[in-house]
């Protein structure tokens, strides 16, 4: 126990000191160089800690993943594109379609609700409370979120006592209960899961958008109001454009979250049954449960390829941002 406290304290004190010391030390080092070289060397020194870590922990494993994706289950035989063909001919298409739904609805849902709350709560005295309520689902661990939504979506046969909130409301309204988590018609199960995820992640969007909202100068908004703009015009012409870089960041994060969705699919809809399969869940099965490293890796690479459009969008956005500032 004691040693753990000491180690933790050491880390909390020493690591910041080391990192600040590192930046100051590099500046010393740079000052030895000639003028033009200083500006050339500095960025690389600033990037070094992050890229050393990322190379060791993410980039090298990813290169291995790409290598595995062309091999058999344990990497002992070359298989070319077989694993990719296997995925696309198997659950691949269903997963891709479901992931498109996930990405679209999760992103739009969290952004629209998150932005509304961030903007509306900015005008009321209970802002802190409102944001806390939206944040709460984030603070609840994933296992508990699954239990919670079991209570929400619970299904009992028509005519018996409903134990789930949603079906209680539906039956009170005179309709028959819906077996949300096992219903593949109209992809009800998929949408039921997406809603859980929106519930969990809207707090994320709210907090980040709200942080950004607070950095907009109040004078700017006041000036617009003095000029006779109504609240909607102020939002559309000033707030929204100024928030758009942050909206892009949150969207990118939510798109990636939507692509990586797996634990709800895994636990709540029987490992991707009822037409709910997703790319990441299939990857988890192949890679983790079945030790099919070749297939699992190929699916992971598909996941990487899927975000290329998102990255291109980000690159354009950053170039634009740098062009105008």
């Amino acid at each position: 126990m004691d040693t753990r406290i000491i180690t933790a304290l050491e880390v909390v004190l020493v690591v910041p000191a080391v990192l600040v010391g590192y930046i100051l030390a590099t500046e010393r080092l740079i000052s030895l160089a000639h003028g033009k070289w200083r500006e050339r060397i500095r960025p690389w020194l600033w990037l070094t800690p992050a890229f050393v870590l990322l190379t060791a922990f993410l980039i090298i494993p990813t290169i291995q993943t790409i290598w595995y994706s062309f091999h058999n289950k344990d990497g002992s035989q070359w298989r070319g594109l077989d694993n990719y063909a296997w995925f696309l001919n198997g659950t691949g298409l269903e997963s891709l379609i479901n992931n498109v739904l996930w990405v679209v609805f999760l992103t739009v849902g969290t952004i629209v609700i998150g932005l509304s709350v961030a903007v509306l709560a900015d005008r009321v005295r209970y802002e802190s409370l409102a944001k806390s309520i939206l944040f709460m689902p984030m603070a609840i661990s994933g296992v508990c979120a699954a239990v919670i939504w079991k209570f929400m979506y619970w299904y009992q046969t028509p005519g018996t006592t409903q134990t789930g909130v949603v079906n209680e409301v539906i039956t009170k309204a005179g309709q028959s209960p819906i077996p949300f988590l096992v219903d593949s018609d109209y992809k009800i199960a998929t949408f039921a899961l997406i809603f859980i995820m929106i519930w969990m992640w809207t707090g994320f969007a709210t907090v980040i958008l709200s942080a950004s909202l607070k950095s907009i100068s109040p004078e700017l908004l006041e000036a617009a109001r003095v000029d006779g703009a109504n609240e909607w015009q102020v939002f559309r012409k000033i707030t929204f454009p100024l928030l758009s870089p942050t909206i892009a960041v949150v969207s990118t994060t939510m798109i990636i979250t939507g692509l990586k969705t797996f634990d709800l699919v895994y636990t709540l809809t029987a490992n991707g049954s009822y037409d709910t399969q997703t790319i990441a869940n299939e990857m988890y099965n192949q890679y983790f449960s079945f030790s099919q490293y070749g297939r699992g890796s190929a699916i992971a690479v598909v996941l990487l390829l899927a975000i290329v459009p998102v990255m291109l969008f980000n690159i354009r956005r950053f170039q634009f941002q740098e062009g105008i500032r």
Partner: peptide, 13 residues
């Protein structure tokens, strides 16, 4: 590359 790393499934690492 950095942004792309967000999508990497942790399990593969």
């Amino acid at each position: 590359i950095l942004v792309a790393l967000i999508v990497i499934p942790l399990q593969t690492t």
